[in-house]
Design a binder for these strands. Sequence first.
DNA 1: AAGTGGATTGGCT
DNA 2: GCCAATCCACTTG
Length: 203
Amino acid sequence: MADNERRDVLPTPVDPAFFHLPTLELARRLIGTMLVSEIGGAVTAGWIVETEAYIGPGDRAAHSYGNRRTPRTEVMFGPPGHAYVYVMHTHHLLNVVSGGIGCPEAVLIRAVEPANGLSVMQLRRGPVRRERDLTSGPGKLTKAMGIDRSYNGHPLFAPPLYITEGREAGEIAVGPRIGIDNSGEAKDYPWRFWEKGNPFVSR
DNA sequence: AAGTGGATTGGCT
DNA sequence: GCCAATCCACTTG
């Protein structure tokens, strides 16, 4: 099948202007949108059901805390709407860069609910006990959708990896972020957002 | 050049 | 619940 033929049935990426929102607002607005991957010639997609905000200079849990500018964090200083992908132990984690240029902020995508390409996700993930184990965590969803470091800096409004309008989100819950217990006062900031009751939320 | 530690996951006790 | 896996960025010498 020709690429242009296949494109016709795929959803349209959001406008780049979508990402020009305060980071906490963007983190909330991303719930219910769809993340689409055309990586490796296979389409996988999932509704975003869990996010976390990381807000630059004043956030001890953020890689960009204190405006730390290194090769790794460089993309966070760039324009919003681009991917910040980094390696955590044996897993890749995907963030949406937010904030203006020079404001190193980002939203971590922590979980999605599969919407398309389930069999491809299963192949990439290998055997899992329950379907919800496929994508119910930041490292799980990147593996299921083929996302790795080579997509660091990729604009998330263009193939092969992009955000689209999704569905209306259910009730959104708010609470402290996961896995940052050593980040001092920042560990209690209520900067995690999730769709209440959705089984694909990481916990 | 070596040491340290982490925005995770999965397997085992 | 504990812990190893396993990799990379970053710091220090």
